[in-house]
């Protein structure tokens, strides 16, 4: 007996596979899979360059351990 839900499942799974393949094709076509090591640096820029830490405990300079006196606020 025909059950429309199986058609729905087939379409849903098929659509996912098509989407994944399309995404992979898109990535390859637009050069996203080339020159990968340069791609790792896109999260850095002139304001936050490679080599500059960007987090610290409150009261401390980036890349330094806070002094005890700086560890809490009054």
């Amino acid at each position: 007996m025909y059950n429309p839900t199986y058609t729905f499942i087939a379409v849903a799974i098929g659509a996912a596979v098509v989407f994944a393949l399309f995404a992979f094709y898109y990535a390859a076509r637009t050069g996203q899979l080339q020159n990968l090591e340069e791609g790792s640096k896109v999260i850095f820029d002139e304001k936050e360059p490679v080599g500059q830490p960007t987090d610290a405990f409150p009261g401390a300079q980036p890349g330094t351990v806070p002094a005890k006196s700086d560890s809490t606020k009054s």
């Binding site: 994944a20 992979f24 090591e37 791609g39 850095f44 490679v50 830490p53």
Partner: peptide
């Protein structure tokens, strides 16, 4: 991790491989 320590990820190839293998 890279942003806080100011260093690019060790191997970007591996990160891409990790993503697509997770997806598949």
């Amino acid at each position: 991790i890279p942003k806080v320590i100011g260093r690019p990820v060790h191997s970007y190839y591996l990160s891409i491989l990790g993503f697509w293998s997770l997806a598949f």
